[in-house]
Design a protein around this nucleic acid. Structure first.
Lengths: 340, 340
DNA sequence: GGCTGGCACTCGCACGGACGGAGTGCCAGG
DNA sequence: CCTGGCACTCCGTCCGTGCGAGTGCCAGCC
């Protein structure tokens, strides 16, 4: 039906105008700025219907209309074409990310890049430990009975744990321990590492068994914890742009939620690398984020997702542009990490 | 002279009241809340002098007085006794920090703890690489010609670098390289590591010389960079407490300066572990921080400072309390890291 | 000489009413 | 089903007023 068609067109126009001007948009302004082919009065009728259906709302009687979360949702699902990145943006991505010296550096650059491209708060997750495999385990003696175990994953993460042994350990034992651990765990995904422990204990020479048990349980226990997943956050200064119009009360709860990494990590656990996931306002379970939107996607190579990245901003954001930026950055990061 | 004495007492009272109430303080309120032994009229005279000397100012005619940066400075230097921490606070420090599993964890807990104790933004620097010594170097082969070198310092930092070799490397060469590197650098401070390179090259067997050169120069070049020093920042949500009264325009420049870690790192380079350093408002070179105060101190064992930590907040802050908290936390962290 | 009470004065701020403008809903006509 | 016209609502702004807090100054007192 042609009417429905046009009504959606009106909604799209409202979203676009409101996002770019930050003012409630009225029927007259709409008719002027967009070629809808009808008069303001007709648009008003459409708006009345859209409001009844819950896609838009007016802050006060006789102000313009503003999209609701539901309106943004419809816009994202059906009305927005994926905006291709400009050449300059593409080049910026390469320039920014090439030349990183290690994983920490890659992710640090990524978060700055994303924050700059989208002018929002950027969030990047370290490659999930549970989905990473052991590349190498190193054991270094700190004191007579204290060992430092360093884990290097195939995703480039390096984690360390201090392990206190009940008894003193000599240099030979350290070397043997290193060999045993690497034989047992090399190439094994951390999620599966726990299953290897019984085997390892059985094959370990008796005099090392206690030590091996202590070390391997410490590793398995502390590394499989999802709390060990890490986030890099950047661009928080961008929260202050909308000058308190975007976030009703203060932006305090959002800053708190970001520092409370658990909240964001849980959201990140739902992403996959093939589709950009958008969560709008009230769609977020977490109360602090009900006035914010998240645009997230997984990064990684074709066959496995390493982690997630994305942005956090006001519901009034440029969804097509931000979705494109998030996806492009994720792809590039995925390639970058795959080849190391 | 008794007059000067009392005038300073008035200044102290003004600072204390203003910090706790966030309202410009008038002569009458001062006389009521403090036992100064004189009438409001006399206090007014003292205030006039203090204002002439530049220690206080009035936002508008006929509002109360507010301390200037200079006033806070005098307060911090001469009028504030170090406030001892409460038992609860001491216990909180221990409870918070004990049980950390590695350096990253220690510093993460520290920054949360500091933010919570002071209700300000907390900043903690990773132990400076240049002042750390090599505990162990590990070489892991990633591909035929690409090596991952992992550095473990005596301060618990673990750094990784990817090194591309011009030629393919076999397993034996990797093992030899590992041995050579550890022999040359073990126990050496990173600041001095560069000096060891010529020696190392001379003693290296000819067939390894190229590889050793590539790896050791990469390490020395990228690790001695002060840009490699890292910061952990937390409690940024506390910036929003004063509800824009504390920070004139927005707090945006402060958030930006914090993300621009370089700024804070430069400030951190000036700390030492024996004295708490306070920088008030305009005393900060960096423009973004002219409406903020920093309280910083070095942490480490008695004989060497590992890095710095501290807080950033509005000039209107509880200096004695925050100085005590920063110092106490730094001491505890120093002990904690010394024994690992 | 320094402290005190009194007094006039200055301002900032909160309150309240008037005004203008933007935007709407509705209706009759094309 | 669209359009132009019209009355209505309500927000934001401006202005004038009153009030209260706080000051500076002065004359008098110890």
């Amino acid at each position: 039906m042609a009417h429905d068609e046009r009504r959606l067109e009106v909604l799209r126009a409202i979203v676009q105008d409101f996002v770019s001007t930050n003012d409630p948009v009225g029927s007259k302004a709409l008719a002027e700025r967009h070629d809808l082919g009808v008069s303001p009065a007709t648009i008003r009728n459409d708006m009345a219907v859209l409001e009844e259906q819950g896609y838009i709302t007016q802050p006060h009687t006789s102000a313009g209309r503003v999209p609701t979360d539901k309106g943004y949702r419809l816009f994202v699902d059906r009305l927005s074409a994926v905006k291709p990145l400009s050449g300059a943006e593409r080049r910026a991505i390469e320039r920014f990310l090439d030349g990183a010296v290690d994983l920490h550096d890659v992710l640090g650059r990524t978060v700055r890049l994303l924050a700059q491209l989208t002018r929002q708060v950027a969030v990047v997750q370290y490659p999930t430990l549970s989905r990473s495999a052991v590349r190498h385990l190193e054991v270094v003696q700190v004191t007579a009975s204290r060992l430092l175990v360093v884990l290097i994953t195939d995703t480039g993460r390096v984690e360390q744990r201090v392990v206190d042994s009940a008894v003193e350990v000599d240099a030979g034992a350290v070397a043997d321990l290193r060999t045993l651990l690497n034989q047992a765990f090399a190439g094994v995904t951390l999620a599966d590492a726990g299953d290897k422990v019984p085997d390892l204990l059985e094959t370990a020479p008796p005099h090392l068994r206690g030590l091996v048990a202590t070390v391997s349980t410490t590793l398995v226990e502390t590394l499989v914890e999802p709390s060990e997943d890490r986030l890099v956050i950047g661009g928080t200064a961008n929260l202050t742009r909308g000058s308190a119009l975007d976030f009703p009360g203060t932006m305090r709860p959002i800053l708190e939620a970001l520092e409370e990494q658990v909240v964001v990590l849980r959201l990140m656990s739902e992403v996959d690398a093939s589709t950009v996931l958008v969560r709008i306002g009230e769609e977020n379970d977490h109360e602090a984020l009900t006035s914010a939107s998240l645009v997230t996607v997984g990064y990684g190579s074709a066959d496995r997702s390493l982690g997630g990245l994305g942005i956090v901003g006001p519901t009034r954001m440029d969804y097509p542009g931000n979705m494109a930026a998030v996806r492009a950055v994720a792809r590039y990061v995925g390639h970058l990490l795959a080849e190391s």
